[in-house]
Every structure is written in structure tokens, then in C-alpha cells.
Amino acid sequence: MKITRRTFLKDAGLVVGILGLSQSAVPQVAEALELLASGRAPVLWLQGQACSGCSISLLNSESPSPADLLTRYLSLYFHHTLSAATGVAARKVLEQSIADERTVLVVEGSVPAGMPKACTLGDETFNELLIRAAKGAQAVVCVGACASFGGIPAAQGNPTGALDVPTFLQQAGIEKPVINLPGCPTHPAWSVGTILHLLRGSLPELDELHRPKAYYNELLHDQCPLFAKYQIQEFARLPGEDGCLFKLGCQGAITKADCSMRGWNGGVNWCVRTRGVCVGCARPEFARDRDYPFYRIHESATNGPRDKES
């Protein structure tokens, strides 16, 4: 059943009557009710070729806390890792969620386009299920590197012909608003922020790769605490050494994400602060090319890493 503006106005009239407010409060109350209801627009979360890392990362959300997310903000109709429903009950829940046209579809993992039997659910391939679910959804959110850009399953060698979700849906002729939230995994602030934005009824501002500008607008290199070292060309040549990690393979200079500002896990740390290189997990080309190692340990440390566009 589709809930219309008219329903909210009618309900608001009742509420105003019960509370003894003046009729002029009706539109305001209607809006509040609409927001409340839309804040609970159903979320259908599907996993394809995934490691569940983005789901686990979601549970690391700082604010709202995971408990608040589950019981106040999201109406998580189906989630493989969290749903009480299993077996026949889960199949039914899946069908009911697909039938609800207000559903926001969240997809974690890539699609085995070249080998559909590499991911199945029930007697259906994941590829078929995804198409059905996307057709009925109001928007599609791709969480993580795999869903957004193919990620590791689509790295060179790609034995299953793994594809990112937007390309797969496009090839299937499905046109829906799509949002990409790359990262391996996606930072919980990126996924929670985006889903809450959507549930409030509007699309966040996106860049040409469908990434929300709020999180992916700048190179993380520009805000890196080691940027000063980079400028004076003080580089670490081996793990453990002082200096900027650029010549060790750090991809901060070609990766757009706000890690260096936001930090991870409540802001206690992030890749470069712990003196690991940024492996570019938010880049479209993350892990793609086997000839570009994450750590440039074995080559003469004189050349900087490739400078492809992100």
C-alpha cells in the first residue's frame, strides 16, 4: 500500500484533534509524520560476491549507534547476516520486500556476470534476484568496493567475470538512481549518512562516479598529517622508516576519500596514521592491476608510484 500525502494530512488532523491543537498546526504535524514514516522506509540488503565486511563495518557506526540504527532509523526488512528469518521464512521476507515499491535496495558485493552459478540463493542465481529486486526499488545503494566498482573479485584474473552492480544493472536495462559508496570496507559514516539521507526523501549530491560529494570530494593526501613531509620530500623507503609513505606505494595522492580527516573506528586510527600505506581501497581501480603492488618494497625506491587519475 502506498502512503500518500493525503494520508498524512488525514492522520495529522486526527493527531491535532487529540492533542487539542489549532488546525493551523496540521501541515506541520503532517510533515513530521511523513518524515517519521519515511525515516522507516524499508531497506532490503542483498549480498552477492561479498565478504560481509561492509555489513560488519555498518555495525561499527558511531552515531547513530548500531542498536539505534536497527530499532529507530532503519526498517531492515532483510539482511543476510542479521535477519531472524531463515530458510522458508527468509524466502518469504525477500519476496515481500521486493514487492514493496518504497524499498531502498542496498547491495554488498560484486555480480558474477560471467559465471552466474557462482552465486545462488534459493533456486535462483543472485544475478536474477538482483534484477528483480532493483526493478522494484526506489534507489540502489552500492556499499563497498565490490558493489561500486568490482573490487577484488574483479581484479585481474577475474575468474567469475565479476562486475560492479551499476554496470550490471545498466546492461540489464534497469534505470534507477544509483549511489556508489566505495571503500574496502565502506566506512560506516559513509553508508549510514547516505542511507539516512535517502530515507529523508532526497538524493545526496553526487559526483560523476555517483559518489556522494560529502565523503569523496577530495584527495586524502591533501589533508594527510604527513603532507608536510611529502612537501619537503622526506620519504620512507622501507616499512617502519620515518617520512611520507609515497615512495613506499601510498596511494593517498590518487584516492578521493575523507579518511585522513575522519579516521576509522571512532576516529582512533586510520591507515597512514598507523604507518601503513593507503592501498586506495576507495579508488575505482582498487587492487585491479597485478603489476602494481601495494608496497613497493622490491624495486629501487627512486620512482614514485604511478600517477593515474582516480
Partner: peptide
């Protein structure tokens, strides 16, 4: 019910990867 093929993807990469 889900295969990605990590062992194939690792072939030819730097061991530190």
C-alpha cells in the same frame, strides 16, 4: 553457494600483496 576465486586472483601478484 558463492565463489570468487581468490587463489586465481593472487597468481602473478607480489607476495607482499
Amino acid at each position: 553457494e558463492m565463489f570468487r576465486g581468490f587463489e586465481a586472483l593472487l597468481k602473478g601478484r607480489d607476495p607482499f600483496d
